[in-house]
């Protein structure tokens, strides 16, 4: 039976991916493919943990996580938008750099405990509520405001947007920074609210799963929510099976989120390919923009 505690566990497991995937969806809707989500999340996880530990306030941790995620995402932003580097390679570099940097500066925090998260309404902490609230907000901003329209226009066809006088690079840089901040919050949630301590590489691929969720979601915020909950469900199922002592080795059970990601990705891609629905991907996704005049 799915009880309230199970649902809570599911939402908690889904929250880091929800934040990161919402951020990546915003960046991708502006036409930027940032593969550095994992690097931004781990940076947010460490910065958030360090700040929460120093001040004793989880809120300060989340703010620091967002700031650190946004700051490191700007390296990617400047390189891809102003130096026109390849987005795939630059995103990979961001992930490697983030993982290395946090492993280097995270040593003093190993074995330290995080301050406790205050509970919220219905026993759900406010970070989960914030994640849930961000879904309709993101949808509204993207689809019902002028800024959202400009962002989507830049992502669909950057040459046309440029010809209309919109600042393509500035719009994208903003979207990248928002994506970085949200990934940073997602990472901070992992260290402050779920694991309650810092360990090297603790995001364990959540950033990559978030990237897959964006594709699954068809670049829509509501789809992102569905995808994140699906993965929360897989994570809870894995924990429950493990606790029930199923005769499957732990190592094989822990493959579940990654295998589920592949399966979901394959189903969605196949549907787009064979049902003739076409990909919902923004038209300029991953393409560098170089203004000739």
């Amino acid at each position: 039976m799915i009880g309230w505690t199970t649902l809570l566990l599911l939402m908690s497991a889904a929250t880091p991916i929800l934040f990161a995937a919402l951020g990546e969806a915003i960046a991708e809707r502006s036409g930027v493919l940032n593969l550095g989500v994992e690097g931004m999340m781990i940076t947010g996880a460490l910065a958030g943990f360090a700040a929460a530990h120093a001040t004793g306030s989880p809120l300060a941790g989340f703010v620091a996580g967002a700031a650190a995620g946004a700051a490191i995402s700007l390296i990617f932003g400047v390189l891809t938008q102003y130096l026109l580097t390849n987005q795939v390679a630059t995103g990979l570099a961001l992930t490697m750099f983030g993982l290395g940097l946090t492993a280097m500066f995270g040593r003093p925090y190993e074995g330290v405990k995080a301050p406790s998260m205050p509970g919220g309404p219905l026993g759900v902490n406010w970070a989960i509520w914030l994640g849930l609230a961000l879904v309709p907000v993101t949808w509204f901003v993207l689809n019902r405001t002028r800024r959202g329209l400009i962002l989507r226009g830049v992502g669909e066809n950057h040459d046309a947007a440029h010809a209309l006088g919109y600042k393509v690079r500035l719009v994208r840089l903003t979207a990248i920074a928002i994506g970085g901040a949200l990934a940073g919050i997602g990472g901070a949630y992992v260290s402050i609210a779920t694991v309650l301590q810092w360990t090297e590489g603790m995001t364990a691929g959540a950033g990559w799963i978030a990237l897959a969720i964006v594709v699954f979601a068809g670049w829509s915020p509501w789809g992102v929510l569905a995808g994140a909950w699906l993965f929360g469900g897989v994570a809870v199922l894995q924990l429950r099976l493990q606790a029930a002592g199923v005769a499957v080795p732990v190592q094989l059970l822990s493959m579940a989120p990654y295998l589920a990601t592949i399966i979901v990705l394959v189903i969605i891609s196949a549907r787009q390919k064979y049902r003739g629905r076409g990909s919902a991907a923004p038209g300029s996704l991953g393409r560098p923009f170089h203004a000739t005049r």
Binding site: I75, L79, L83, T85, N86, A89, T90, L92, A93, L94, M96, F97, G98, L99, G100, L101, A103, M104, R107, E200
Partner: peptide, 18 residues
């Protein structure tokens, strides 16, 4: 720290692309 190499490698890729 042991992670120095990783940081170096990440930085190298950034500079290289730049």
């Amino acid at each position: 720290p042991a992670a120095t190499v990783q940081v170096f490698q990440g930085m190298l890729l950034f500079f290289l692309l730049g």
